[in-house]
């Protein structure tokens, strides 16, 4: 698998993100950028201002994906800043460190409460990795 992709899937009350990439780092970058786009209601502005580092540590690969996405939600809501470009600097099944560029927002246009463990999957597929994460919105 060479190409990264994501899609949002309908759920009665929540939303599910399906994402695929060639590596764990690629998966985190694609998922994080997809969430950024969702928070900005699909508008993809050029990043502005200085970049910043985001990092998480977790118990395993699945929890890492949830913690990573929750970190982005936390930053968006507390600092009114949404990442739109992510470069993964370090990745292992229990650790991620990324350089992020983003945009300031007056108020995140879309509200997402949390990434959840429900129906969570991170699996090898087609020579790469695929993940599914459900968000409480």
């Amino acid at each position: 698998m060479n190409e990264r992709w994501h899609r949002w899937v309908d759920h009665t009350s929540e939303v599910q993100l399906q994402v695929a990439a060639e590596s764990l780092g690629g998966l985190a970058a694609e998922a994080g950028q997809a969430l950024g786009l969702l928070l900005l209601r699909g508008a993809a502005p050029e990043p502005s201002g200085p970049s910043r580092e985001l990092a998480v540590d977790s118990v395993d690969r699945e929890a890492l994906m949830v913690d990573w996405l929750n970190e982005i939600l936390f930053v968006a809501e507390t600092e009114l800043w949404v990442p739109v470009e992510l470069e993964i600097l370090e990745s292992s099944p229990t650790h991620l460190r990324a350089q992020a560029r983003g945009v300031p927002v007056e108020d995140p246009p879309v509200h997402v409460k949390a990434a959840t463990f429900h129906g969570l999957r991170v699996e090898e597929e087609d020579g790469g990795l695929k993940a599914e994460v459900i968000f409480d919105v």
Partner: peptide, 13 residues
């Protein structure tokens, strides 16, 4: 950034 709505890349089960 990859593409959204990838019906052709992986059929949704």
């Amino acid at each position: 950034m990859g593409k959204n709505n990838q019906q052709d890349k992986a059929a949704r089960p």
